[in-house]
Amino acid sequence: MNIFRLAGDMSHLFSILLLLLKIHTIKSCAGVSLKTQELYALVFATRYLDIFTGYISLYNTLMKMFFLWSSFTIVWYMRYHNVVRRSYDKDQDTFRHYFLILPCFILALLVHEKFTFLEVLWTFSLYLEAVAILPQLVLLQRTRNVDNLTGHYVFFLGAYRSFYILNWIYRYFTEQNYYKWITWISGLVQTALYADFFYYYVKSWRNSERLQLPA
């Protein structure tokens, strides 16, 4: 493991902890897209099936378990928690997330490394993760006034993706035969989706004002 990969994983972990902190302590999920959270739960559930079939390291297994647990916990809070669910912006969070799932699945059936059950699901999870942030970005754009925790959450998610790109570049130059076209391309698409948000996030941070997205 290199420093970029570790920084990426830690940003990812931190972003989820921020979101859990917000939901658990403030008992509010205002500004958080349930659609995106449901997509992430599906991403982790389809990607980490290998938790039962292979072992890479204790670190790997613990992180996978955390991502699975946290994503389903967040969905549970937003759907069923007595107080939290009332703060959910249901009317604003209208992105048709089901329309993302089928194309990603068809693409995974067509473009994959190996045609096995686990491999196709793994590939599906990569494609779906690439676009899973879209409902969240649309919701931010709609509400425009972004509260700090939600803004930081999306920022650290984007940081996680950026560090992964540095990690791939590093591995490409330091390891033999390290090519992962599918991972790279879906990762690049995913990171590109954050570019616009990053711009406004950094701008508001430099002017030390509240993050506001243009309509």
Binding site: R5, D9, I56, M63, E113
Partner: peptide, 10 residues
């Protein structure tokens, strides 16, 4: 080897 560490990232 290829199989084993092809999915070593999260």
């Amino acid at each position: 080897e290829d199989d084993e560490d092809s999915h070593d990232e999260l």
